[in-house]
Design a protein around this nucleic acid. Structure first.
Lengths: 352, 352
DNA sequence: CGACCGTACTTAAACGTGTAAGACTGTCAA
DNA sequence: TTGACAGTCTTACACGTTTAAGTACGGTCG
């Protein structure tokens, strides 16, 4: 077994004390430049690397940042959002010498709290909070634990957690305006999972933009951000006895994709009969037929910004909320002019 | 600041030494049942939780298992495979009191090795190796580091790493046979990224099954497991001057999905003109139009099995390779009878 | 009755690192 | 010459846990 090399080994090899080695290696004063150089060189030759456990123990704080995902695995599996986010976070974290701890947890408040306490006790340096819920109990929890945290999304809820906001409302509003400009008046919405902050804010944005034109959504049904949910919701929209929408705004690309497939299956053409917009700009969305009009959020950048905020929160104090640049809409082939609605106008006479 | 509660606090509260507390809490002999109970109760009341750093330090081995992903973030982002795998792994790991460390690393051998050494020095308890390459240097590395590792995929390469095999060949062979049974003879393949074990084995399986019918693939082009790659490869297949395939076997669902969209764009109907098969059974695949015929791998279960193997490797010795049950083919709407090829037969007279 | 043993518990050292406080040397000003 | 002081290095302890070795006590057996 290749015994690990410790600062004691370096101390012995250079003929100084371990304290000097520690000072030297951490760029602290109290060591002459000459010995500092010698120590560095020896450390390098011996292949020394800091032992995170020992550091964590003495510092009362480890270098690891935890991301606790509260999702059933099957829901999680659907979402190409996560790998991108993790990639962004991890890139910055590891550049700063930190490490990302990934935990998944069942959909249960008590279990969740216990996991956070566990991590806290082991000296976890920070938390990344995702999937914010209304009145999220985690905000109070991390404040009690006094551990820096960063929330992804609009979460002014709590002063103790830094928020990296990505306002998804402009994107949705742009989609709605785009559809209005194309002449659509009967616009429906397939929302995300109820109770999630970004599901609600997207729906609100849709309503707000429609209101500027004196309209209301023709119908709002909630998918749950999954492919199945998107298909089910779409089926309800087109087979209900309400008025048929000419455009559907989906809360994410995944639901839009399965929704488009369902529309095709029931013989409706996109965008001939119905226009469709998504949200996320998933990598696949550009390669669908028709290619999906959507809103491009740079999830990797979001992750990076979150990590940056968290890192600042860890070694300086609390951090003011930051805001990501608003995502831009990507117009592709899934949206087009509203179909001629003369027959509809006939049944519903309007003031001219 | 809520000072963390240590075994010393428990010791003081119960009037015993810290050693006794440690013995009691770890279910070791040497403590009477009565005091053990008292200690447990006090620990509970005080909300004590073990400090991982301290344990890691004294045990010379932490409770964390690392998964190092060597991918450019953009490639990673495309793949719904990862969240499912992570979910499976993490579920078992955390049930055993372990923790998952996620690292991403640039596509560079030296950097990669350095990351593994880093983790090893900090007492990482095990590694999960994914995306095995031919002659993967990581196998030798983890053996040198003497840290248990588990490889996902067929990796007999190294005795030191436990392999959890998921033989993807039967799935591909089933797809090919299915197509042959439907009368297809001109079958093309869109392969994965060259140099990856599972890309190669899928291609080999395709060739092998075709060989049983005395056939060869009409063409093999390599995508790279991405949506873009799938579209590009498909375009080459249908616009090349070679004979037009009547069926395309894709190495994964993502490429199949973008491929189908491209086929639709050039006016080819699926499965009327061309049949398509994928691999993975991504959650979206059932909700495409037409729904995708594919091979359903239970990625979550794979992750669980990998974690199990690794855990056994950690606290018992080396582990023999295990094999996952072969994935089953899911026949959906994207495959159908081969189109009537009379005109082709005319240009290429065959022995009747 | 002393030797011996098992049980219940404690003492003390260790893991690798960080750091406050002290020791030693040399320089400079008074 | 002496004291103050800066610079360099060391000593010694802390972090929270595990564990080998030791102590104390009561009981059993020859």
């Amino acid at each position: 077994m290749p015994r690990r090399v410790t600062i004691a080994d370096i101390a012995e090899a250079t003929g100084v004390s371990t304290a000097s080695v520690s000072y030297a290696l951490n760029d602290r004063p109290g060591v002459s430049e000459e010995t500092r150089g010698r120590i560095r060189q020896v450390a390098d030759e011996l292949g020394w690397r800091p032992n995170r456990a020992a550091r964590a123990l003495v510092n009362q704080r480890s270098t690891s940042v935890a991301l606790v995902l509260r999702r059933i695995p099957d829901t999680l599996a659907l979402d190409p959002f996560w790998p991108a986010l993790l990639a962004g976070i991890e890139r910055r974290l590891s550049a700063a010498g930190h490490v990302l701890l990934l935990r998944m947890v069942d959909d249960d408040d008590e279990v969740e709290e216990s996991v956070y306490r566990d991590l806290a006790q082991s000296g976890c340096a920070g938390f990344v909070l995702t999937d914010l819920r209304d009145d999220d109990p985690r905000c109070a929890l991390v404040e009690e634990l006094e551990i820096p945290a960063v929330a992804l999304g609009r979460a002014r809820q709590s002063p103790g957690v830094a928020a990296v906001e990505l306002d998804d409302r402009p994107g949705i509003r742009a989609c709605v305006r785009h559809l209005l400009d194309l002449g659509h008046r009967r616009i429906a919405h397939v929302a995300g999972r109820p109770g999630m902050v970004h599901a609600r804010s997207r729906e609100q944005a849709l309503r707000a933009e429609l209101a500027t034109a004196g309209l209301e959504p023709v119908e709002v049904v909630s998918g749950d951000f999954t492919a199945q949910g998107g298909a089910d919701a779409t089926k309800r929209l087109v087979s209900g006895d309400g008025p048929m929408p000419t455009a559907i705004v989906y809360a994410n690309d995944l639901m839009a994709t399965s929704g488009m497939a369902l529309l095709a299956d029931v013989g409706l053409s996109v965008p001939g009969d119905i226009s469709v917009t998504g949200y996320d700009d998933a990598p696949l969305s550009a390669h669908l037929s028709p290619a999906l009009t959507t809103v491009a959020t740079d999830v990797v950048a979001w992750g990076e910004a979150a990590a940056d905020a968290l890192l600042r929160g860890i070694d300086a104090g609390p951090v003011p909320p930051t805001t990501m640049p608003p995502p831009r809409m990507v117009v592709r082939a899934s949206t087009g002019p509203a179909p001629d609605e003369r027959e509809l106008d006939a049944t519903e006479p309007e003031v001219t």
